[in-house]
Design a protein around this nucleic acid. Structure first.
Lengths: 230, 230
DNA sequence: CAGTATCCCCACCGATACTG
DNA sequence: CAGTATCGGTGGGGATACTG
């Protein structure tokens, strides 16, 4: 009879926790904060969440007023954060910075996922140092089986495209490392020059593009945060 | 095979959410931030959480490094936040302020609980305007059944005691209202003068103590936050 | 593409009782 | 006071299929 989901407390921390601390919800909001608006965009950001559950969460968040939906001509809808949802940004960012400060890197690096990593890199890649013209950068994780081993990033006219298949263009730079190394670099755990020197990161191709890697390969938002655990 | 509880993402938001967004965890941390250190103190702050689950959560949080335990001579332990746990304060507070800004008051006021309210009032009551000597204030919620109707707050030597039974002292002030009204006042939804004028809040007893109610009855930490929903 | 529907299983949670 | 033990229920997640 009692509401099974809730905490039964009037305290605003409790009310917020009922919304924010439901399974997957924080990550869905993170995706929306990063700019995803379509169902399958959101799915790419939370690949291990079932579509049924994602759909349910989106409806709940809309009902609560954290999300607003805008119908599109195709019949599908776009999901956007309401002002209340946008106001969660500092909390979600706070959680990320806390995680960066206090969660052991070994623990984070147990959750390797090339498609998530590449999706994140694409989202933050800075095309400006790679202009003008088209630039194709191939990422290779030699230890992975075929469908996950190679990724191509095509930068053209300031737009970044990510492919899981060879787009057929000339490769301007090949970036080769283990998935673990690239993830550690992305998280800010390992500096690029250090990994290059140790031979764990290899760059083959045009020197100017290789030399500019620290300019175009923007690291995670949380990478600059000083760590407080080993 | 896969870890059922986690999200499988290296993102620090995800790592933090795995910790913070487990059921009840945010509220347990809130209690620790408020200064509770003993098992049964914590239970009073999360009365609808089973002791088994509280015990489990405390162990998990200790293992993660958010809590440290200190044994006491009686054999039981004291729970304290580690630096990592203390560093969660801004996030928990952020959640509370967000809730205060955006959660409809009607929704919060569906979760009335006199013992939680009185426990909160006790924790924040300012004894300074009630000095010197002993002062006994009775709170009465006439609509409630007997074991929850009357509460006594005894202020003496700067210390505040809460009783669910008549301590036998002379009552210096009787505060009478519905539980809903008192909760709304505490949350900052309804100003005390307004509720007095409307007859929903009655004060009987010594005038100076009644007149000073806005000095000793500190409202919730979140009460001053401007609301952004009706 | 953008979801909805269904089935099954199981880990987590709630409730209650119990113990040193 | 400070927890542990036990048991039954259920919501979440995987799998799969289906619809407009």
């Amino acid at each position: 009879m009692e509401d099974r989901g809730g905490y039964g407390q009037f305290c605003p921390v409790s009310m917020a926790a009922e919304i924010l601390c439901t399974r997957w919800t924080a990550l869905v909001i993170r995706e929306l904060l990063c700019g995803s608006t379509r169902f399958n965009q959101l799915r790419r950001g939370v690949p291990r969440m079932s579509p049924a559950l994602l759909s349910k969460r989106l409806k709940e968040l809309e009902k609560i007023g954290v999300i607003v939906t805008a119908p599109r001509e195709s019949g599908a809808v776009e999901y956007h954060l309401s002002p209340a949802g946008e106001d969660l940004r500092s909390i979600i960012l706070g959680m990320g910075f806390w995680g960066q400060r206090w969660v052991e890197s070994q623990l984070s690096l147990k959750n390797l996922d090339p498609s998530l990593l590449m999706w994140d890199i694409r989202r933050n890649l800075n095309p400006e140092p790679l202009l003008p013209g088209r630039c194709t950068i191939q990422f290779q994780y030699p230890e992975l089986p075929e469908p996950q081993r190679n990724w191509w990033m095509v930068i053209e006219k300031g737009k970044v495209d990510l492919c899981g298949f060879d787009p057929g263009y000339e490769i301007n730079l090949l970036v080769r490392s283990s998935l673990r190394t690239m993830t550690a670099i992305w998280m800010g755990f390992a500096p690029i020059p250090h990994e290059l020197a140790a031979g764990r990161l290899e760059l083959q191709g045009e020197r100017p593009i290789a030399n500019a890697i620290q300019k175009w390969l923007t690291l995670s938002t949380f990478a600059p945060e000083p760590r407080r655990v080993s």
